[in-house]
C-alpha cells in the first residue's frame, strides 16, 4: 500500500468511495462532476499551477494494483473564495465584588479566524482496506507531504471534526441553535454544505454572541464533541499535536482541532536517511515507520515493519524501496505512532 497524489484516472474509484459512505462526509459528495472538478484542482495543485489560496492536495491510498482504496486531502489556505465560519467559545465573566457574585458564561462568537490556515480534510478509507495500519498510514501521509513541502502550507493547520449527532441523524446543537434561525433539517444543511453552499448558510447563522447557558444541556454537550465514528480520527490528531483551541463547527458544534504546523510531531521529528537494501529480508517485525520519497509529483508514502538503522542510513526491504520509487536514495522517516518516536531516536543515536 502506498499513498500518492490523486490522478485523473482515479475518478471512478473516488466516486465509488464517496458512494460507500452515507451522510456526514460532506466534503466528498457522491457527485461525479463535483468530484472530477476536485481532482482537476488537485492535479493542478501538484503541478504548482494554482496560487496557494486555491491549492488543494488530494492523495489516494493505492494497493499493489494501483487501485485507489482511500483518499485524504489538504487545503493549502482556506477562506479566500468564500468566508470560512467557526464559533469561538470565549469566556464572559460577570462579577460584583461588593456582594460577592461571580458568573462565568462560555459564549459563542461567530468568527472567520481560520482564514489562511491549511486544512486537513476529506479522509475516507474503503471498508475493504481497513486494518494492517492502512488508516494510520493514509491520515498521516499528509503530514509527511507537508514536512517535505513545508512552503506550500500555512503557519497553522486545522481540521474541523464531524460533530455529534444521534442515531436518527439529529444534531442537538443544530436543533437548539441553527434551526431556530432558519428551520431546515440537519441532513439538508449537511447536503448543502457539501455542495458549496456553506457560506450561504453561514450567513444566516446568528451574528450576535450567544450565551451558552441559553442553549439546552444537550446542545452544550455538543461543544467540541465528535461523532462516535470520528473518535479514532480525533485521537490520531491529538497524538500528532493538534489541539482543541475553543473553536467549534457552526452547524454541529464539532471541534476544530488546530496546531502550528512546525509543532506537529511528524514535522518536528521526522529524519532524512540514506536508504539501503535490507540484507536479511526475514528480519523481525518492529514498530511500523512511515517513509516518504522526496518527489512532489511522484510523492509516495508507505509503511515498513522491517528496517535497520545505522548512523545516517536505513536499511529497508526491497518491496518497500520499490514502492517508494526513490530517485536519490534519500528517504524521510518517522515512527507511525508518537509513542514509538523515542525508540526511533535512540536507534539513530
Amino acid at each position: 500500500m502506498i499513498v500518492r497524489p490523486i490522478q485523473t484516472s482515479d475518478l471512478d474509484a473516488l466516486y465509488a468511495l464517496a458512494q460507500s459512505v452515507g451522510v456526514g462526509m460532506n466534503s466528498l459528495p457522491a457527485d461525479k462532476a463535483y468530484l472530477a472538478k476536485k481532482i482537476d484542482r488537485a492535479v493542478q495543485s501538484f503541478n504548482l499551477s494554482l496560487p496557494k489560496e486555491q491549492a488543494s492536495y488530494l492523495f489516494v491510498l493505492a494497493d499493489d494494483q494501483d487501485r485507489a482504496l482511500g483518499v485524504c486531502g489538504i487545503e493549502a489556505s482556506i477562506g479566500w473564495d468564500e468566508p470560512w465560519y467557526t464559533y469561538r467559545i470565549s469566556q464572559m465573566v460577570h462579577a460584583c465584588q461588593d456582594i460577592n457574585i461571580y458568573s462565568n458564561t462560555p459564549t459563542l462568537f461567530l468568527t472567520n479566524d481560520q482564514i489562511g490556515y491549511s486544512e486537513l480534510c476529506s479522509l475516507l478509507l474503503h471498508p475493504d482496506a481497513r486494518g494492517r495500519k492502512n488508516g494510520p498510514l493514509l491520515s498521516r501521509a499528509r503530514f509527511m507531504f507537508i514536512r517535505q513541502f513545508r512552503e506550500l502550507f500555512a503557519r497553522k493547520i486545522f481540521a474541523e471534526m464531524r460533530g455529534f449527532n444521534d442515531e436518527q441523524g439529529q444534531s442537538p446543537f443544530w436543533d437548539n441553535l441553527g434551526r431556530k434561525f432558519f428551520n431546515m433539517e440537519f441532513d439538508r444543511i449537511d447536503f448543502l454544505t457539501g455542495r458549496g453552499q456553506r457560506s450561504v448558510i453561514a450567513e444566516l447563522m446568528p451574528k450576535y454572541p450567544v450565551y451558552s447557558h441559553l442553549l439546552s444541556e444537550s446542545a452544550r454537550a455538543c461543544f467540541g464533541k465528535v461523532h462516535p465514528n470520528t473518535q479514532p480520527a480525533l485521537e490520531m490528531l491529538k497524538q500528532e499535536g493538534l489541539r482543541f483551541e475553543n473553536y467549534i463547527a457552526i452547524f454541529d458544534g464539532g471541534p476544530v482541532m488546530e496546531a502550528y504546523i512546525d509543532d506537529l510531531r511528524l514535522i518536528k521529528d521526522s529524519i532524512v536517511f540514506t536508504a539501503e537494501a535490507l540484507i536479511t529480508d526475514n528480519a523481525d517485525e518492529q514498530p511500523p515507520i512511515l517513509l516518504s520519497n522526496q518527489s512532489l509529483e511522484d510523492f509516495r508514502t508507505t509503511l515498513s515493519f522491517q528496517y535497520r538503522i545505522e548512523g545516517n542510513s536505513i536499511q529497508l526491504p526491497a518491496q518497500v524501496l520499490d514502492a517508494l520509487n526513490l530517485q536519490d536514495n534519500q528517504v524521510t522517516v518517522a515512527s507511525l505512532y508518537a509513542r514509538d518516536q523515542s525508540q526511533l531516536f535512540t536507534m539513530t543515536g
Binding site: 461588593d98 456582594i99 458568573s103 446568528p206
Partner: peptide
C-alpha cells in the same frame, strides 16, 4: 432589592451586555 439599595453598577457588572436572541429563550 440590590438594584434599589445599591448603585446601578450592580446591573452594569452583572447583566449581559450583548444583544439577546429571543428565540433562544
Amino acid at each position: 432589592y440590590h438594584a434599589s439599595i445599591e448603585d446601578k453598577a450592580l446591573i452594569a457588572q452583572l447583566m449581559p451586555n450583548q444583544p439577546l436572541y429571543e428565540n433562544l429563550l
